[in-house]
Amino acid sequence: MTVATEPTTGAVPPPSKEDVITVNKMNKWYGNFHVLQDIDLSVRKGERIVICGPSGSGKSTLIRTLNRLETYQSGEVYVDGILLGDDVKNIEAVRREVCMVFQHFNLFPHMTVLENLTLAPIWVRKMPKKQANELAMHYLERVRIAEQAHKFPGQLSGGQQQRVAIARSLCMQPKIMLFDEPTSALDPEMVKEVLDVMVELAKEGMTMLCVTHEMGFAKEVADRVIFMDAGQIVEMAGPKEFFDNPKSDRTKLFLSQILSH
């Protein structure tokens, strides 16, 4: 549970060996809008982190900087020991090890479920097609959707599509998985089937960063919960501490709003 909060005077501390993600004084602006302010964060291998906060607080932007879907203007981001900057080689190297599950699934509509899963293993990992198919079927079984392998994404329900998206990420056998509001676009009755898969993954020791408002999920699996507001990390604590004894007023207000019903 180390948090790099020590202010540094220009010198960059090298990422610790245990940490798979190290973010140092990272800042990002959209024009004049300061989306991320002095973010410091380190994540150890196998840690499960839930990030919550009101909309517009920068939580999605933060995890999107971790696989360079978003750039940043100052500070450093190390993922798996690799500095994520403008270097295209570094970016591709990080993306091989970090996969993302999106709010709107972003499956490829013109390919079958199986083709969605085997695409990256075949083209990025250069895996033979037969082996990629076996790998894909293995993960489809794990997300309990193997019977849909030859359908197109458009023929599946939202919950099924999101489970396919998770399986697609798993096929890259990533070291880290990022979840960007994975259940927000789902009908309520489908949230559970997706969360069940995520809980299983967490229990198997996958390093996970998850932006979500599913506080039950946070309580069950998170090692740390991060609360963000206005581009800053306001509070970061273990789930028990976070829910039972929040320190900042903004966190208390947020928790009272989302836990009230």
Binding site: N67, R68, L69, E92, R95, R96, V98, C99, M100, F102, H104, N106, L107, F108, P109, H110, L119, A120, W123, V124, R168, S169, M172
Partner: peptide
């Protein structure tokens, strides 16, 4: 989102274009 999905799976620009974007 289709471009982002391609990026997040570590596909190169030309792979993404050829396999994901252009067919659609």
């Amino acid at each position: 989102g289709q471009f982002e999905a391609g990026d997040s799976l570590a596909l190169s620009y030309w792979q993404s274009m050829r396999l994901i974007i252009l067919p659609q």
